[in-house]
Amino acid sequence: MITRRGFLQVLGSGFASAMALGGYAFAVEPLARLRIAHYSLTPPGWTPGLRLRVVALADLHACEPWMSARRIASICERANELGGDVTVLLGDYASGMNLVTRYVHSAEWSKALSTLKAPLGIHAIMGNHDWWEDRTAQKNGGGDTFGHRALAEVGIPVYSNRALRFEKDGLGFWIAGLEDQLALLPGKKWKRSAMGGLDDLDGTLAQVTDEAPVILLAHEPDIFPRVPPRVSLTLSGHTHGGQVRFIGHSPVVPSRFGDRYAYGHIVEEERNLIVSGGLGCSIAPVRFGVPPEIVVVDLG
């Protein structure tokens, strides 16, 4: 069975023999396009009268030439124009590939993200690559990564299995954020035989103390089958929509559920999940049929 890594590497190596398709997937869609993906919904149990706009950025994968600090700042400027009440960052700020001319330091990408503005704040979680590229965090098996520290230094709170309550127009809602589900790599040098997650869904939701609606930030969408109806909306990234998507289908997705949670608005048993197509690339700088996007969600 072909893996996502194998699929993207094969596609990346085929540029010379497919110049038209490859040139677009390699140079145009990843670099020159930016889509606004807009969703409007009123989840079951949503507080009547509470109208909330959420702007979401996912999977920046900062590196040059594909996602420079200047480009991140430009994306943030566009996000600020969208009038969000809150802006959320869904993880994977660190680069996830070797085909780069320069890695963008965490001090650079966090400075660019510090330009984001929203009346009810900017709220972040970590992604798997933020953990995987931090050797000290891997050795420790927890704690803060360089990503946690970089965001904290520019005043952006990181939710590591935490829930906080906010109000708009006197009506409350919660933002809850999970630590990453694939944070810890297996291997002898880490003394781990299997991939390990640091997420605590039950402990995070236990911090919710009233009936106000909950927005859950979870980098990987694979947690969704375990999310209870108490959560109004789950927001995820990680998949990049498969990075290659044909006629609404992604052939290879980094999820144990395959294409089920690859992209877009998914409703299961009256529970709502929105998966962003993300902004950057991992494994190979290829996008086709799923351009970089900012997600806007109007609730209520």
Rank of each mutant, 00 (worst) to 15 (best):
A163T: 10
R33C: 07
E167G: 15
L164I: 12
Q243F: 10
L164M: 13
A94N: 08
S95M: 07
E153T: 12
G170A: 07
M67C: 09
N272P: 00
S193K: 14
N161M: 09
G170Y: 03
D222P: 02
A20S: 12
H105Q: 14
G196A: 04
G203Y: 11
K111P: 07
E133S: 08
G196L: 03
I223N: 02
L273D: 02
H265D: 11
F246C: 11
R230V: 09
G300W: 11
H148E: 09
G177W: 01
T204F: 00
S250P: 00
P225D: 12
M67H: 01
R260C: 03
G278K: 04
W132F: 14
A27P: 01
A137W: 00
H219E: 04
P30S: 07
L8G: 05
I122C: 06
L31I: 03
T47D: 09
S255L: 11
Y159N: 02
L235V: 08
A16S: 13
F246S: 03
V244Q: 08
G289E: 06
I283R: 01
F15Q: 09
V100I: 12
P221Y: 00
H123C: 10
T239A: 08
E133W: 09
F224C: 09
C63H: 12
R226I: 07
P119R: 06
A20K: 10
R78V: 14
G141Q: 04
H238F: 05
L205K: 13
L57I: 05
F246K: 02
F166E: 08
F146G: 05
E108C: 06
V296E: 02
N128K: 07
I223K: 00
S95K: 06
D298Y: 06
H238M: 04
L205N: 03
P213N: 08
G22I: 13
G248F: 04
V295N: 02
E133L: 12
F257S: 10
G12C: 01
L90I: 02
P251H: 13
F288A: 11
D259Y: 11
A152Q: 11
G45A: 03
R51Q: 15
A32L: 15
H38D: 13
M1N: 10
F146C: 11
G280H: 10
G258H: 04
R271V: 11
N140F: 08
S106R: 12
G258R: 07
R4A: 07
N98P: 00
A69E: 14
L113A: 03
G12K: 04
P186V: 04
C63M: 13
L50F: 05
R271G: 01
I75R: 04
L41Y: 02
R149M: 14
A32M: 14
W46C: 05
A73M: 03
Q138D: 04
